[in-house]
Simulated assay, not measured.
Amino acid sequence: MLDETTKGVFTIAVTPFLPHGALDFDSIDRMVDAYIARGANGLTILGMMGEAGKLTAEESVAVVRRVIARSSVPVVVGVSAPGLAAISALSDEAMDAGAAGVMVAPPNTLRTDAQILSYFQDIAATLGKTPFVLQDFPLATGVQISTTVILKVVETCPTCVMLKHEDWPGLEKISTLRAASDAGARSISILCGNGGMYLLEEMLRGADGAMTGFGYPEMMRRVIDAVNAGDIDHARDVFDAYMPMIRYEAQPGIGLAIRKYSLARQGVIAHPTLRKPGAVLTPAATAEIEALAARQRIRLAQLGLADEASG
Rank of each mutant, 00 (worst) to 15 (best):
S175D: 14
M1D: 12
S71G: 02
P272A: 01
K152L: 12
K152S: 15
D182N: 14
A183K: 06
R38L: 13
P217W: 01
A179Y: 07
A100H: 04
Q121L: 14
E290M: 04
T11H: 13
V63M: 05
G209H: 12
V14T: 14
M1V: 11
Q135I: 02
D237F: 01
F137R: 04
R70I: 00
F120S: 01
L171P: 02
I188P: 05
Q302L: 06
P131Q: 08
A125Y: 04
D24A: 07
Q115R: 05
V79F: 05
L200I: 04
E58N: 11
A309Q: 11
E201V: 01
K54F: 15
P272C: 03
V67T: 09
E51L: 07
T176G: 04
A125N: 10
D96G: 13
Y198G: 00
L139A: 15
D233C: 00
I12T: 07
Q302T: 05
V102R: 08
A287T: 14
A62C: 01
K173R: 15
A284H: 11
R65K: 14
V268W: 07
D240N: 12
L292S: 04
I28C: 00
N228W: 11
L163I: 15
F137V: 12
V76R: 01
G193L: 04
S175R: 15
Y198E: 06
L110A: 06
L117M: 04
V268Y: 01
Y216C: 03
M219V: 10
M243C: 04
A264Q: 13
M1P: 13
A94T: 08
G128L: 03
Y242M: 03
A279E: 05
Y198R: 13
L163C: 08
A264R: 09
C192G: 07
R297N: 14
G50C: 09
T141F: 02
P19N: 12
M162R: 12
L200Q: 06
E202T: 03
I87N: 03
L55T: 08
D96I: 09
R70F: 00
S189P: 00
T6Y: 08
I232M: 01
L200V: 03
M31N: 14
R111T: 14
A86M: 13
H234N: 08
I232R: 00
R222Y: 09
V75N: 02
R299F: 05
L171W: 00
V77P: 08
A293T: 11
E308N: 10
L117V: 10
L84Q: 09
V238S: 02
W168K: 13
P138K: 02
H165C: 01
D26N: 08
V75S: 03
G101L: 06
G47N: 02
E4K: 15
A140W: 06
T148N: 12
M243R: 14
T212R: 08
E166R: 10
S181G: 07
A89P: 00
I269C: 10
G206A: 02
D92L: 07
I190A: 03
S88F: 07
